[in-house]
Amino acid sequence: MVKTAHKLQATELDRRQASPDNAGKKPCMRQFKVIVVFNQAVSQGWMLIAFAWPEDLGPPVPGQFFTFNPQGLQAGDAGLLRRPLAFAHYGRGLAFALYQIRGKATQALSSFPEGGSLDLIAPLGNGFPLPLLGEQALLAGGGIGIGPLFYLQSVVQGSDTSTNASSLPQYPASKLFLGFRSATQIPSFTQAAERWLRQTQSTDRTQELFANDRQPVLAGLADLQLCLDQAYIATDDGSRGFKGTVVEALLHEIGLADASLKTLNAHLFACGPTPMLAAVDALALEQGVSAQLSAEQWMACGVGACQGCVLPARAGGYLRACADGPVFSQGEILWKA
């Protein structure tokens, strides 16, 4: 249906991985090339990228991430290390990721042409565990950390029709809370879809190039927009939704006066800036409920070898964001070390 991801030249290792002995095991991380089919701005300084996912890998787990090799940058210009991005959506053979233009590598990625091929290592890290039956999943995302929660929400709600969603157990409707600095940061996937359609229909070449990807891309964007439309919004400046932090919005909505998180049988899932993760961690401890927190950290290898991306562990020592995380359980990390 969509263009198949191009694997780098097959090696002995690939043949061994593909052997029947490995069938049914957790998908191995792999280095491969993908064709970028979508790479558009979705709000001020925020971008969404989508690419064909190798069919034989199986879907990534929400909370997992990939690393890409920055293209068009020289080693002397911040192009030496790979950069990690979390999956924001997966469906119909396409994987999506949200990113913010922050430094040279994300700046370069933002101008990476649709149709170009990007070198990835994926899937990496440990994703979010799914909530247990009967648990009330409360998802909180802050800033660019909202990406993995979109994906988690779509899996928990079974809105991702391309996977075996019908076979998933039914959960109480999970609630998604998203925090932004201001309304200008809130993405519009609908507008991005319109712009992409106009651009890809502009010439015969792009029409042909993207003909097969049109439906999966638009469906993915529609899924994301639906998730966003159903989410509770908080902004720091009050320009949209609740005025305050995403954690304050969550507490306000739940109305803790009459219901504690414990009686709700709540399970918290969060990704965002460190102060926000610290707040969710503390809230879960105080209320005696489970929480899963996805951390962000600078990385070099992304696979657990270099020990560069560590976070201080509450039990002493350090944990690697890439291989022990990026999703940690409540109480594992000392956020304010």
Partner: peptide, 15 residues
């Protein structure tokens, strides 16, 4: 356990 983070920074052509 190793040193306190941050432990890495990319510099021109280097780490």
């Amino acid at each position: 356990v190793g040193n306190k983070p941050p432990r890495l920074v990319e510099t021109p052509s280097g780490l």
